[in-house]
Simulated scan of single mutants.
Amino acid sequence: MNAPRTFVPQATRTAEPDAAPRTYPEHKPERIYLFGTCVVDLFFPEAGMDAIRLLEREGIQVVFPQAQSCCGQPAYTSGYTDQAREVARAQLALFDQDWPVVVPSGSCAGMFRHHYQELFAGEPDTLARARAVAERTYELAEFLLHVCRVELHDQGPPTEVALHTSCSARREMHTHHHGRALLDQLSGVRRVDHDHESECCGFGGTFCVRMPDISGAMVADKTRSLRDSGATRVVSADAGCLMNINGALKKQRAPLQGQHLASFLWQRTGGQP
């Protein structure tokens, strides 16, 4: 294993926004790839299934390459660039058709869209493939909002929801705009603002393992803000953050719990809880 470069938690990495406003296709594609992410696969499988249901309801065939694994972000943010590159190379090989790649995680989508190009800067052929995949990678909420142009019809009872947006996904993929827009389509949902929405929950992948005291203090601030907001549910499009926030809330014996945005949208618009 190669020696790591200097460790920089993803929560503190410099933003790398799109150079210009993104241009979205005029029509929905017939097929897409779903990159499910390892955290969704292991801890929130219902969110992956609900993402598929939302996309299929839009008339899109969802292709899920069975060999997919991690996007390589944990190794990359921990400084193990060579290992991250090999993981990324294996993922790129799975998306050989010119179909959009939809990811139910803003941080993993950001890894595809931005950091794969950094990883393969010295390999022209692979860099070209990474750029092509980056151009057709979408975070799930972004894809539903701007490509599918969904019009959601709320079928649930009145409720108050607090939105959490992953800090890296917020900077790199602008997921706070997409999540807010989708929730605001739901007539029975009142989105409650809280004063720590833009702040990191303390997860940061391996950051929470390397710096547990700092991570614990951050999630304590986050959950305090969520509990004080008066919301009855927390919604997020990033499963890693949900795992951290839900774990802290459970330890606090708080009734409030978080749910992935895909599952929340599916349930509110006709799916079964």
Rank of each mutant, 00 (worst) to 15 (best):
V147T: 10
D18T: 09
R191D: 01
A237M: 07
A162C: 11
A169N: 07
L249N: 11
G179N: 12
H260P: 05
A169S: 14
E30V: 11
D18V: 04
G202T: 12
G202F: 10
F95K: 02
F35D: 04
V133Q: 09
G188K: 06
V219F: 02
E58F: 01
R53G: 04
V8I: 13
E26R: 14
T165Y: 06
H164G: 05
E46D: 05
R85Y: 12
D238C: 06
Q73I: 05
G270M: 01
L182I: 04
E30D: 11
T165L: 14
P212W: 07
L261N: 01
A109P: 06
L119H: 09
Q66P: 05
A262Q: 01
E142S: 05
T77E: 14
P255A: 06
R57E: 12
S105L: 11
G188I: 11
A11Q: 11
T232N: 09
P157R: 03
Q97G: 08
D193R: 06
G110P: 00
R268S: 07
T126E: 12
R210V: 10
E26D: 14
L183W: 07
A121T: 06
P212L: 08
R210N: 15
R57F: 01
F207P: 04
A132E: 13
L226A: 03
L92T: 04
K251P: 03
D213E: 15
P74K: 03
T77M: 07
C241Y: 07
S166R: 08
D193V: 08
E142F: 01
H177Q: 14
S225H: 06
P124S: 11
Y138E: 03
S198K: 10
Y33W: 12
H27F: 12
A51T: 15
S107G: 01
H115M: 05
C200M: 04
S229G: 08
D221Q: 15
P100E: 08
K28H: 09
V147K: 00
R136K: 03
Q259V: 12
H115W: 11
N246K: 02
S225C: 06
Q155T: 09
V102P: 02
A67N: 09
L55E: 02
I52L: 10
C70W: 11
F44W: 08
F44I: 00
P9E: 08
A239S: 15
A237E: 02
F264E: 02
S187G: 07
A90Y: 00
R227N: 10
F203N: 05
E56D: 07
G156N: 04
R190L: 08
I32T: 12
E58L: 04
H176V: 14
